[in-house]
Design a protein around this nucleic acid. Structure first.
Lengths: 344, 344
DNA sequence: CGTTCGCGTGAAATGGATTTCAAGGGATTT
DNA sequence: AAATCCCTTGAAATCCATTTCACGCGAACG
């Protein structure tokens, strides 16, 4: 491998000068040209490891996500990548598999590799511990979930608003007995969505004198396919089953749809509104309305904040909240569309 | 940050001894214990950057894939990751977006970061150039596609066999006019699958005196959703449209299904067999049979080969070919199942 | 004309771990 | 008792780019 010294010798200058040529130091034009030419001839590219060691910082940022197979996170990753490319930072992706231990290992690696910064979608709000990084003063941005007690910039989704939007849409479509399959209790991503659902339902019931929200209409599951499926089964087994359901994440929606199919009451007979885009939603028949998460923008924005920090800005900690967007996909929506026909 | 020197001073030994304690050198038990204790107290962990610089090799392997949003590659990534974890190598993922330039940048980064090795699913068989890595003697394993002219270990899928299996299954299910939506001409992953299709169809037609395979039954598309959709539309517009189609990758299958839905001839009226698992296939109604790609094992095997190379084995270059597995998912399969009923 | 300022330059220090080499000490062999 | 050997240990070299510091030269200024 050709080093900076080889280039220096060949060009008849000192290594310092070569370094300056590549890093914007002051060098006379004539020399700079000579160095560049020699470097090109020798196929020199600076050794990033040596540079990182000296600079105490690598030109790599870490992106730590809990589930690489969830399209939400891959789309987020694309956002980060595209934003990072603008400053010549490269992104390395680490998949924690929702495992706090695995996550800790990756956080340690990020620290030990002296990455320029880390964007982390925490595996757990309680148990994820960012102190390894904070202790070293490493720039960190949390996305989607902000670990408790962490003093970091964050980019979040307006989950409550999304929950409201989703529930309101189901009401508008004519459904009335609307249930909710929420995520794990205590997870803020789930609690906020649920709060949005509750708020809209409460208002609606008050206006229509509809009584109270049946407590059994709220189920907690684990954000996974299986959990959504069994929660939906439970709901369908109720004496007064719901005519629609707001599902708090995409994977559980897949499960809920499976349960509905088994029971033969698929949408639009039973309304389904998913929080988060269901992968390949176009394949689902009929098409499903969803609350779209701004996953790409989440990543893009987080990368932006991180780069500001890396550049050394001193602005106070910042939390950016991005809104969801309702995507209506039903051609003929509402319980009447098929339900009515079935009654004939 | 506490360094190896801090530990050495605190423990009253030389840095060399501390290094030996952590890297399996010979140190008397009593001293080793003291060093370990001091290191723990000081919270010392070796600086990976410095280590990489000295060792001329990082403890990281690069995994370069063309599309992080394709479940095939994410599953492959999981395989690599799980295998790598066993030797304390960490995996960094780079997404090339099927873009040869972006890929080249990542290859250069891998070289400059002195990664221990690279697993690459090439963006292009012709234009991907691994010489940056080969020049430095860096261990490389190709997965899924082997770039032309590269002297590297490889792990491939038995694409021809998969194509045969798929086509034979459609025949067994009772379909006769079977078309094929292949990938881009020249891509080996596509050509081999197509070859499998052709071989089985030729045999079948010969046996049944069915004449020649209509050339218009073979369409080439781009391995993407849109391509699959328009290819399927073209097929349906033929004077004698096929009654089944073998689609050469998962994304095009999604497109083909969309086109079939538009035309109202969804499976099983028109048979569909996808090469590669269709994501969330359980949502598709009715369930789809697929040729399962051993994506996870592809990754796992590649990581194994890579680790052998990293360890310095001298065995000759090796290509491992993994077989596909037909996954039958139809409950009532074949054109008669619904087609017959419709005729009544 | 002498001083100051600014700029370009190279020598050398720096970052932190690994590894070679030589030396020292204890045990074993002759 | 002397010679040999093996094992442990630390000093110092090494990996390579960046950056500080000091020097020297030419221009500008008093």
């Amino acid at each position: 491998m050709t080093t900076i010294n080889d280039v220096a010798r060949a060009a008849g200058v000192s290594p310092a000068t070569v370094s300056r040529v590549f890093n914007g130091g002051r060098v006379t034009a004539e020399r700079a040209e000579r160095v560049r030419k020699t470097a090109a001839e020798l196929g020199f590219s600076p050794n990033r490891v040596a540079r990182s060691l000296r600079m105490q910082r690598a030109s790599v940022i870490g992106l730590i996500i809990p589930d690489i197979e969830n399209p939400f996170f891959t789309s987020l990753a694309r956002g980060v990548e595209d934003a990072a490319q603008q400053t010549n930072l490269s992104v390395v992706l680490c998949n924690t598999d929702e495992d706090v231990d695995k996550e800790r290992r990756y956080l340690e690696i990020a620290a030990a590799e002296q990455m320029a910064g880390v964007i982390v979608a925490a595996a757990s709000r309680n148990r994820t511990d960012l102190s390894v990084l904070e202790g070293r003063g490493m720039p960190v941005v949390a996305v989607d979930r902000r670990p408790r007690g962490a003093s970091v910039d964050a980019v979040m989704v307006d989950n409550q608003h999304g929950g409201e939007e989703a529930t309101a849409h189901l009401l508008r479509s004519g459904y009335r007995r609307i249930a909710c399959i929420a995520g794990p209790e205590g997870a803020s991503t789930s609690d906020d969505r649920l709060a949005g659902y509750r708020a809209v339902m409460r208002d609606h019931l008050r206006e229509t004198d509809g009584g109270a929200l049946p407590p059994e209409y709220v189920r907690h599951a684990d954000f996974r396919v299986e959990g959504g499926r069994s929660a939906m089964r439970d709901l369908l087994a109720l004496p007064a089953p719901p005519d629609a359901v707001f599902v708090a994440n995409n994977l559980m929606t897949v499960g809920a749809l499976q349960a509905l199919r088994e029971a033969g009451t698929e949408p639009p007979r039973t309304g389904v509104l998913s929080f988060g885009d269901v992968p390949w939603a176009s394949l689902v028949r009929p098409p499903l309305s969803t609350v779209q998460l701004p996953s790409y923008d989440l990543g893009w924005t987080a990368a932006g904040l991180l780069q500001e920090r890396i550049a050394g800005t001193e602005r106070p900690l910042q939390t950016v909240v991005l809104r969801t967007a309702l995507q209506v996909r039903e051609s003929t929506s509402g319980p009447g569309a098929q339900g009515g026909a079935a009654r004939d």
